[in-house]
């Protein structure tokens, strides 16, 4: 039995069925991501001064990933237009570039950005112990300048066993530049370029720590939102890449030979999904990386 209205439009809707379906799906996606973005914004607005992490993401890398996704949107549209003009090999090449862009985006996320965060450590100091760690926090200096105080000491954790072993009484941290030299005016504001940890080691006693964690979702509302939204977005990118690959393989060529307009319509539907996924990133990038 042939599926109706895959190429021709339905008389009552004026559209072929898959297009109605994808827009209904995208409407549900808007609600999904809209809810997550709203949660992020309200969490941030309600955060205490100095408690919301800022400048922890690598802006140049995020910018590169943004450019990759924008380029992939261009190539997917060119792939679809090539099919409409019955230029199969142009379609094939544009689709290949789109797939490679998607894979590159995911690789940067999974091999570089996320692992870098998982390898980083932060310890929030108890209110009563802030003075003890003043050499690493520099809050007197910040107060003089009217800036929000610091509560967290961050860096590379040398003794990771301290996270789970109650017999280890302190954390050994190779400090980030901001905690290694907290009164340096250059560290008054967040940095937006990657800065490796310094050689300066600090010993933070566990009893002075209110909360400590690697930069994982449980570290803070910021990282919980970051990993949830970028993770969900990454899954969407993966889904798009899988479907693009399916149409790029010989199965697409067979469908093209049988009915080129049908393949063009299928690519248009996935292209709409891909554009939505890229549009989500257009909001993710400034919210998490810049603001």
């Amino acid at each position: 039995m042939e599926i109706p209205y895959t190429v021709n439009t339905r008389p009552d809707t004026g559209l072929w069925n898959a297009k109605v379906g994808i827009w209904l799906f995208l409407a549900s996606e808007v609600m999904l991501f809209g809810g997550l973005f709203s949660a992020y914004i309200f969490l941030r607005l309600d955060a205490e001064p100095g408690m919301w992490p800022h400048g922890l993401l690598n802006v140049p890398v995020g910018t590169m990933n943004t450019a990759i996704l924008i380029a992939s949107s261009v190539t997917v549209v060119l792939a679809w237009a090539s099919l409409k003009m019955r230029r199969f090999w142009a379609y094939w090449w544009y689709m290949l570039i789109t797939i490679l862009c998607g894979i590159t985006f995911l690789t940067v996320k999974l091999v570089y950005e996320w692992p870098q965060k998982f390898d980083h450590f932060g310890a929030f100091i108890k209110q009563e112990a802030l003075e003890k760690y003043e050499p690493y926090l520099g809050n007197h200096h910040l107060e003089e300048k009217g800036l929000a105080p610091r509560r967290e000491i961050t860096g590379h954790l040398h003794n990771k066993a301290a996270l789970s072993d109650p017999n280890i009484k302190e954390y050994d941290i190779a400090l980030d530049p901001v905690n290694a030299d907290p009164t340096n005016p250059a560290n008054d504001r967040p940095h937006f370029l990657y800065q490796p940890s310094t050689d300066k080691i600090a010993k933070i006693e566990k009893e002075d720590v209110e909360y400590a964690s690697m930069f994982e979702p449980r570290h803070s509302a910021y990282f919980a939102s970051y990993f949830t939204i970028t993770g969900l977005h990454g899954l969407h990118v993966l889904g798009g890449v899988i479907v693009f690959t399916y149409f790029w393989l010989p199965i697409g060529s067979k469908l093209y030979k049988r009915n080129p307009e049908h393949l063009a319509n299928r690519v248009e539907v996935v292209g709409l999904f891909w554009h939505f996924v890229d549009l989500v990133w257009i909001f993710v990038f400034p919210l998490f990386y810049l603001l």
Partner: peptide, 22 residues
């Protein structure tokens, strides 16, 4: 909305993002 229409909307948002990033 068709893919070409959505693409133009996307390019408008991308342009705004580029201006904002600048």
């Amino acid at each position: 909305m068709s893919l070409r229409g959505f693409h133009i909307v996307f390019i408008v948002f991308s342009t705004l993002l580029a201006l904002g990033t600048g």
